[in-house]
C-alpha cells in the first residue's frame, strides 16, 4: 500500500528504462534512523555540500531542527553505500550543485546564503536527468520524519501522537443511534 508517492511524478516499472530508478534500488537497503554515523561514500568536502543541501530542503524553524541536525546527509550517504549503483548518481549530483553554485554566485554551495542556495537547487532540479534531486529530497524526508527528535516536536506543535501508531490507543465505539435514518430506509439494493 504505497500512499507516499506523488502521483504526478510516479512511474511504474518500465523495462528498458535507462535511468537508474532510485526507488527500486533502495528497496533492500535498510538504514537505521537516529544513529550517529559518519560518511562513507562522500568525502569531507562533498559532505559539507550535502549537509547544506538537505538543510536547504528542510530548514530549521522554531523548535524544528534543520535536516542536517538529525543526520539526513549521513543517512543518504549510508543508503547509497548499500546501493552501489546510486553512489555515482549522488557524487555527480553533489558536484553539479557545487558547480552551479560556482557559476551562479561564485562560491561553494555550502557557504552561500539561503536565497542563493534555493536558486542553485532550483536550477539543478530543473535540469536533473539522473533523478538525483528527487532521490536526495525523498531520502531527506525519510531521515527527518522518522527521527524521534522531529516526531516529538511535531507532537508538541501539531498534536500528532506518533507513539500511538506503535503502542495503540482508544476511540469511542459507534453510537448506533446515529443509524436511525438509515434503518428506516426500505431495501435499496438492486434486485436480480
Amino acid at each position: 500500500m504505497a500512499y507516499d508517492w506523488r502521483k504526478e511524478e510516479y512511474e511504474v516499472t518500465r523495462p528498458g528504462r535507462t535511468r537508474i530508478d532510485y526507488r527500486q534500488e533502495i528497496g533492500r537497503a535498510h538504514v537505521p534512523i537516529g544513529v550517529e554515523r559518519g560518511f562513507t561514500v562522500v568525502d569531507a568536502e562533498r559532505a559539507e555540500t550535502l549537509r547544506a543541501w538537505v538543510s536547504a530542503l528542510i530548514p530549521a524553524a522554531g523548535e524544528r531542527p534543520a535536516a542536517e541536525e538529525v543526520g539526513a546527509a549521513e543517512y543518504i550517504d549510508a543508503t547509497v553505500f548499500l546501493t552501489p549503483r546510486l553512489r555515482g548518481v549522488l557524487l555527480d549530483a553533489v558536484d553539479a550543485v557545487d558547480r552551479i553554485a560556482s557559476e551562479m554566485v561564485g562560491e561553494r554551495f555550502a557557504v552561500t546564503g539561503p536565497a542563493e542556495q534555493e536558486a542553485v537547487l532550483r536550477a539543478f532540479e530543473a535540469n536533473d536527468p539522473l533523478d538525483a534531486f528527487p532521490m536526495v529530497r525523498d531520502l531527506t524526508y525519510e531521515a527527518y520524519y522518522a527521527h524521534p527528535r522531529v516526531l516529538e516536536v511535531l507532537e508538541r506543535e501539531t498534536g500528532w501522537r506518533y507513539e500511538i501508531a506503535i503502542s495503540g490507543g482508544e476511540l469511542e465505539p459507534l453510537d448506533e443511534h446515529l443509524l436511525a435514518r438509515m434503518r428506516e430506509v426500505p431495501a435499496r439494493y438492486r434486485k436480480v
Partner: peptide
Amino acid sequence: LDWEVRARRSWSPSPNIR
C-alpha cells in the same frame, strides 16, 4: 518507529522495489 520508511523499502507493495 521508522515504520514509514520500512513501508517504502522492505515492505513496499511493489515486488520490484522490495
